[in-house]
Simulated assay, not measured.
Amino acid sequence: MAEHLQHFLNGNSKLLVGPIAIIICEDNIEIHSTLDHVCMLGFRTILAVSPEPVAKLNKTEGVYNLLFDTRHPHAHVNAVNAVNAAAPAGSWIYYGYNAEYLFFPFSETRRIAEMLAFNAEERRSAVLSYVIDLYAPDLSRFPNAVSLEEAMFDRIGYYALGRKDPDGKVMERQLDFHGGLRWRFEEFIPESRRRIDRIALFRSRESLKLLPDHRFSDEEYNTYACPWHNSLTAAVASFRVAKALVNNPGSRDEIPGFTWRNSCRFEWRAQQLMDLGLMEPGQWY
């Protein structure tokens, strides 16, 4: 029987060996392929948190299915902050959802530990990631908008705006990024959820808090680069928005499909994302 997340963290924190991946399972779609992907990247501890036990989960060392209310509006905040508090200080943590797939520069040939070691040497404690919306080309064949074999995404339509603090002052080295389905179908997306930037990888630290808008309490974690040169960025290829748009009552009958003239086939290669400027290797990686 699956153990509850908090109970696991209270008694098994020694098992939290980094890098750690937290996969927040909101439904049953592509959970296994998501877990296989983070295993392939080289994460040493993988926490699959879900409201009910995941069916037919492979018994793989370092993979734990833990019970957690992932349908709570702030599920990501509660799960990530709980793991951050329990993990050894300085552990690298990734968080994402089922049917999301992390890519970083040259991730086909380099393991996650190599990339994170590079970031640590660059004195970076976080990796800015862009959430790139994936979608099936034909909703009549794929009504849940998910198809790994025929996945599509937008090749253009991404932009950034200067981020401002509560007093209206532009913040240093911070931008709000937009694009993808959140941009094309913004009338169905609350304004607070239209950004595509996420600090998906970060180093654990006492008193650090993830905020509901996917930013952190430490503003340096929210920057896209260090002060002296460009920093490496990553991408999260995600079916999450497409799934939501075909299921939410306000949008499901209004959207006949997601494909448009600027759609292209997703090749499941980091190089494709770099060629389109959707992530970059920094200056020396």
Results as ranks from 00 to 15, higher is better:
A126K: 08
A82K: 12
R205W: 00
E114C: 04
F68H: 01
N10V: 07
S238R: 09
A48T: 00
N78D: 02
R182Y: 11
A126E: 11
K164Y: 10
A235E: 01
H74C: 08
G162D: 10
F103S: 11
A234Y: 08
R193L: 13
A270Y: 05
K59F: 00
R124Y: 02
S147F: 06
P227M: 12
L57Q: 03
Q272A: 13
T60L: 09
V241I: 15
A160D: 05
N81I: 04
D133I: 10
I156C: 11
N81P: 01
V246D: 05
C25I: 15
R155P: 00
S192W: 05
L276E: 08
N78R: 15
V170F: 10
N28G: 12
S263R: 07
A113S: 13
R240S: 15
R163W: 04
A75N: 08
Y130E: 06
D69W: 07
A117N: 14
T60N: 07
V131C: 13
P256D: 04
A113W: 01
T109R: 15
Y158N: 04
Y159W: 15
E26N: 11
N119S: 12
V131I: 14
E52V: 02
H7K: 14
V17G: 01
S91C: 09
L47G: 03
Q174Y: 06
Y224W: 15
R110N: 13
N230Q: 10
L278A: 07
L245W: 09
H32L: 10
G42H: 05
N81Y: 01
I132W: 12
G157A: 12
V146K: 03
L181P: 03
D253V: 07
R123W: 06
A86W: 03
F43A: 02
V146C: 08
A145G: 02
H72E: 11
R111Q: 14
V54H: 08
L276V: 06
R163C: 02
S50Y: 03
N262D: 14
N119R: 13
N84H: 09
A225D: 00
L9E: 06
A200I: 09
N81H: 01
G157I: 13
Y97V: 04
A117I: 05
N119G: 12
R269D: 07
N78T: 00
I20S: 09
N58C: 02
C39S: 15
P281R: 12
F68W: 01
L9M: 11
I132S: 07
L245V: 07
A120T: 15
R155A: 10
L116F: 06
F185N: 03
Y285R: 08
R195M: 06
M40Y: 02
C39T: 15
S263H: 10
N247D: 11
G168E: 02
S238N: 10
L232S: 01
L57I: 00
R155N: 07
R261P: 00
A136E: 06
Q6S: 04
F43S: 06
L102V: 14
E150L: 14
L35H: 03
P73F: 03
F104N: 00
A235L: 10
E114S: 14
I31Y: 06
N262W: 11
L139S: 03
C264D: 14
A117L: 15
L276A: 13
D213P: 04
